[in-house]
Design a protein around this nucleic acid. Sequence first.
DNA 1: AGACTTATTTCATACCATAAACTCGAAGTG
DNA 2: CACTTCGAGTTTATGGTATGAAATAAGTCT
Lengths: 418, 418
Amino acid sequence: MVARRATVRDMRRSNRAVLLSKIYLDGPLSRHELTQLTALSPASVSTLVAEFLDEGIVEEAGSVESDGGRPRVLLQVAPTFGHVIGVDVGETRVTVELFDMSMAALAKADYPIERASLAPQTTVKHILDGIAAVSAQAGVDPGDILGVGVAVSGVVDSGDDGLVHAQTLGWDGVPLRSMLRAGTDIPIHIDNGAKTLGQAEMWFGAGRGVQHAVIALVGSGVGAAVVAGGASYRGSRSSAGEWGHTTIAYGGRQCRCGAKGCLEAYVGAEGILDRFRDANSGRVAEGIDEESAIGAIIAAAESSRTAEKVLTETVGYLGAGIATLVNLFNPERIVLGGWAGLALGSRWLPEIRAAAGEHALRRPFSQTEITLCQLGPDAVALGAATLPVAKLLSDGGVRAARGDLDPVRGPRVRLITA
Amino acid sequence: MVARRATVRDMRRSNRAVLLSKIYLDGPLSRHELTQLTALSPASVSTLVAEFLDEGIVEEAGSVESDGGRPRVLLQVAPTFGHVIGVDVGETRVTVELFDMSMAALAKADYPIERASLAPQTTVKHILDGIAAVSAQAGVDPGDILGVGVAVSGVVDSGDDGLVHAQTLGWDGVPLRSMLRAGTDIPIHIDNGAKTLGQAEMWFGAGRGVQHAVIALVGSGVGAAVVAGGASYRGSRSSAGEWGHTTIAYGGRQCRCGAKGCLEAYVGAEGILDRFRDANSGRVAEGIDEESAIGAIIAAAESSRTAEKVLTETVGYLGAGIATLVNLFNPERIVLGGWAGLALGSRWLPEIRAAAGEHALRRPFSQTEITLCQLGPDAVALGAATLPVAKLLSDGGVRAARGDLDPVRGPRVRLITA
DNA sequence: AGACTTATTTCATACCATAAACTCGAAGTG
DNA sequence: CACTTCGAGTTTATGGTATGAAATAAGTCT
């Protein structure tokens, strides 16, 4: 319904993209298997693979013995075809990490940040320094870097400036992409941290093999990455999936967003601590960070009735929140993550499932698995690094142009040589 | 990422679909305008339009005077190219309606139904009788009917049998499509009634011109039709958009679905009446249907503090429910409908907007319009009738084969003649 | 009547996926 | 060891496709 017009070149790019994605995500595969998986003819697979080999993006990876026929030659995306960088702009640090095409981490740089001094300029400097540092550290020519993916904890407009709106950082409309472009000509991709983590789980973690999933993240904040039909669901302005501020208890606890009764006010770390404080006559472990405090409450669940009660309630609220996702998005799988989500989930997953089942409609609930994230919170940078890879795959393996803005629209200018 | 392989024929079909959809949805348009709107070259537009004219699916519709050049010839989809039938299987009646391609209603048949006797067989008989009746009534050759769209109030599996699961009808896995196919060879399309109503609003009502929208329906039940990127969002098993049973008040009122605190238990017609009963010491108008009862409460809002209080609360809950849609789906527009939704909305839309604003995140809320449905509840059959039209458009104007199952997969068999 | 303007069509061209025929590399077979 | 069989991959001829450039159509304006 929204399909764009297609030219004969689009067809080529599209088929290259299909083929390359299969090789990357499900490889190593033989040409023969590829014909079956992509529905392309053997002739086309042969031609396209020959192009890929020629360009160096795909390489042979051994072969499979046959029982009486020519052996199959396996193909994979060449890990050394290029490198990508993933950046995680967190609230306490900027992490920059360099990967090869197989997403093996080759170098890492960390820039701790003074709370409340996360000026955009400082962040940009850290990112640019980090790019230089990890490139040097791994001995990679910057010209060999396909792209940089940046994950921020806020909403990222899809426009050209890469406008970032991040309440927790105090950013409102920071043109992060433009700012970075002034310091490097490597293509920049920016996205929300929850979405990049979701992307990482989809490719390499608990989301593998599924087309519709919601990665539900519970930490200090509460958010979700929605994947529909294999692609990130962004809504009209890329802010879809703001799960934490759905109303779960009308007229209930005050949330930091200003509203009352948000899910985050109940199952976010602060919400849990607040409720524990309320239930425990104001007494709560002081002087330690949120993560340790939550850990302490969880540890106390065996012995303390108060802790147990608060966490049981938390499980209930979380289940109801998950039920909302099930009812509205009808995913095949819900992947629970975030540090608090994992802490709760690794101990009470069956109870969370049961609570979700009580609040969700039977049919969609029975069609939804609920599992835990597999990659841990460091995967934000990994997920960010998948952004340039995803771009490369969807472009059919054609490197993005350097320095420039997005590719020229309209007819391509043809150079006339002699 | 999920793109299928493409052949040159796919390209043709895709471009035909793009062009035909534009002509249908935004026509009449000239060839020249079409080249700009579709990004196709003038040459291609010319060729494809010539094909359409030849096939009779598109016709000329006058021309536009020029100020000094050749006048543009306007094109539109020929209203008489074919006919479509829309069926609304409601809880009290089966409505069958016949339209031409311009969605002008040409004939209608109604089959009232005894409550609680909605056996699938009876329904099928009503539908088949209705098809015959409206065809005869309008003097349309059944062979000239492109397809029948059927709207049911339940979940419809996307599989080949058209399995319908409708709790309110007591249907669990009724193979409606297979059953209908035994009685007619006209292609059958089945979908959920909320989704067909949403489709009607998107094409002809309050959803025009928007790519991301949620049509929020409040009646006896509460549901939503989600449109993302111009297409219906279905989730993995077509049950996405079950808005009515999202938890809005944890631990709150008992809902007929079995859970507690569902939105439907507060803003659904029954929920409103129950809450009014509770607030009014058990007194409520008896012996009249739900719709009149709600109307009576709304009428009493001016004079009765109880009615006013209940409805103000309703507006609050509804706003919170809408906020959940805004936060999770980030649509451009929310269209409020359903008989109760319209009754509330036509009187308290500003208050509903305000309540939604209190519960939604500022940014996505500011990017979302909230409006009312324009078509009324009869549009369910109209929306159902758009299903075969949508199929025709996405196939680029190639009629679906009669009688058979879905088109053969794999290589087409070629007949060898002489 | 001629100049000009804008819409549409025609035609030569480049590009594409594909079927069918063919080659390649191994295991079996007498 | 020749020869067959089998399955994987490649080459080639072909028909289908959109497109740019040039031509044509159909008006207005002076």
